[in-house]
Amino acid sequence: MSTMLELTGVNKTFNPGTINEKQALLDINLKMEDGDFVTVIGGNGAGKSTMLNAVAGVWPIDTGSIIIGGENVTALPDYKRAHLIGRVFQDPMMGTATTMQIEENLALAARRGKTRTLRWQVTDAERAEYRERLKILGLGLEDRLTQKVGLLSGGQRQALTLLMASLRKPKLLLLDEHTAALDPKTAKKVLEITREIVEKDHLTALMVTHNMRDAIQTGNRLIMMYEGRILYDISGEEKKNLTVEDLMHKFEEASGEEFSDDKSLLSK
């Protein structure tokens, strides 16, 4: 087994020296092995999405190192890390180019991190492959390859973005509350598709969620964050037996605060 993600001593402070100064990440250490599916849970402002953005390279970190698939990417901006990372965003509008066709979006993703040449953007062989892959989603998108993505629903777009993120096998799949903007039924379906794709392609994934039940039922390891720190890290058998009540108890114990749905905005 090889290490797919290694965060060592990662710190990030936003707006340092101003009245809005915020220590967003505090000495984050995290190691993910090949095939790990880690769910990240925590309240608003806990640093979940911030940690994902640090890994994705949205902005540079203050101190520490980020190593993905053995490559030190700390100095690289997001587009130079893209060859290692597949991303799905919270906002269904963010992951796709809406004025472009479904097959054009897939072709863009199939060349993630590669040099864009003056070859035609999508070949017939690829088109056949996309059709097969889209069939697995069970959303009927395989017959709509040349339609604009803008015509798809939020759930369909998230499913498509998932497919795009995994089309070229990433060292790490980053899922940033990718079901949060969907209605409960669609969210469930997209989460199912997520589990299937991660399992089938044997992906290493890091998934942020607000939903404690999803966090417990998904993946092989769970991390709880609070005020920029990792409070709690649980995996294996222990995670399998975890309940929502355990999680709430752990939260109170570690943070020294009484658990309140209002404060943390976690949902059971």
Binding site: D78, A82, A97, M100, L108, R111, R112, R116
Partner: peptide, 18 residues
Amino acid sequence: SAMRATGCNPEMAKAQGI
């Protein structure tokens, strides 16, 4: 097509390594 993606959705384009 990478240029069109840049105009349509810069965040998506960056995530694709553009």
